[in-house]
């Protein structure tokens, strides 16, 4: 049985706008426009897409705080909006932009309140608290009021808070927003291990694609409310017409090289950039280059998700 099961899910927002003194217009926004997917227990899925694509809207429906306009939706075999409270015990949610902690209270008190709200048995609570506090290195901060924590510290505290009740699913909406490189790295490692060791199902939304590459094996791309892609990284590269780039420095300036299977995309003095489709080997191209002119230096750049994503987005 899938952990998350979504079929033709839609959510429309009605926007009323003031135009002039008396004129008002109503406009419908299809924030989520018929998406279908399912996530098995233990999967770690990256959910990406440009601003306004519908990611947060999807997550709100998955947690039950937003009622879908239409479509089928089951999380842990429950209808989220109808069984919101019951589902809440089984999921953990982290919103990067806001905190689930009590602003004026010492961090420890927030955790203690959550223990009671989720009715976490004391042994479980103590085991989880010491494990996660250690892994995310917030042990020294437990006595500090949340309002005094830095963004990165608060973010880590929020993640501990979301995990105290052993959720089966963890939703993260932009958890690395505003974090420095070291904190991001620590968080990614933590999430990867959580997924591997505890089998926690993860749905991760972010604009930092490194997060996705390091935590998830599967990617879903949403654009204008529709799923533009669902698969692993190899398939993502293929679907996005990923290309590898051969950067070659010749001894002397030469006209753009015409080698079968490649295309020159840029020339700058002795340096030329040739693209090769991601699936094909670069060996023959390099051999052909070497046989035509004398090469001083050569490097190959692998495609990044940043390169392939634009190909997946429908241009309006």
């Amino acid at each position: 049985m899938p952990m998350i099961d979504v079929h033709d899910l839609r959510r429309t927002f009605l926007i009323r706008e003031r135009r002039g003194v008396l004129r008002r217009t109503r406009r419908e926004v299809q924030a989520v426009d018929g998406i279908t997917f399912s996530v098995e227990p233990g999967e770690a899925v990256g959910y990406i897409g440009p601003n306004g694509a519908g990611k947060s809207t999807t997550i709100k429906m998955l947690t039950g705080i937003l009622v879908p306009t239409s479509g089928h939706l089951r999380v842990a075999d429950l209808d989220p909006s109808r069984r919101r409270t019951e589902l809440a015990r089984r999921i953990g949610v982290v919103f990067g932009q806001r905190t689930g902690l009590w602003w004026d209270l010492p961090l420890r008190d927030s955790f203690e309140l959550l223990r009671r709200i989720y009715r976490v048995p004391t042994p479980t609570y103590e085991r989880n608290l010491s494990a996660y506090v250690g892994l995310l290195e917030i042990g020294d901060l437990l006595g500090q009021p949340v309002r005094q924590l830095s963004l990165g510290q608060r973010m880590r505290a929020d993640i501990v808070a979301a995990l105290l009740h052993d959720p089966e699913i963890l939703y993260l909406d932009e958890p690395t927003i505003g974090l420095d490189i070291a904190s991001k790295q620590r968080l990614r490692t933590f999430l990867r291990e959580l997924n591997a060791d505890r089998g926690t199902t993860i749905l991760l939304t972010t604009h930092d694609l490194v997060d996705i590459e390091q935590v998830c094996r599967r990617v879903m791309v949403i654009d204008h409310g529709r799923l533009a892609f669902d698969g692993d990284f190899a398939a993502l590269h293929a679907a996005g017409q990923a290309t590898r780039t051969v950067v070659v420095d010749f001894h002397d300036e030469v006209p753009p090289i015409d080698v079968p299977g490649s295309r020159v995309v840029r020339v700058d003095g002795v340096r030329q950039w040739l693209t090769v489709p991601a699936g094909t080997p670069t060996g023959p191209v390099i051999a052909a280059l070497a046989s035509s002119h004398e090469i001083a230096d050569l490097s190959i750049r692998e495609p990044t998700i940043e390169d392939v994503l634009p190909h997946l987005y429908a241009r309006p």
Binding site: T63, G64, R84, A88, R89, V93, R98, I117
Partner: peptide, 9 residues
């Protein structure tokens, strides 16, 4: 949203 995501009324 955070408050509604809790299993308490």
């Amino acid at each position: 949203a955070t408050d509604l995501q809790r299993p308490a009324p």
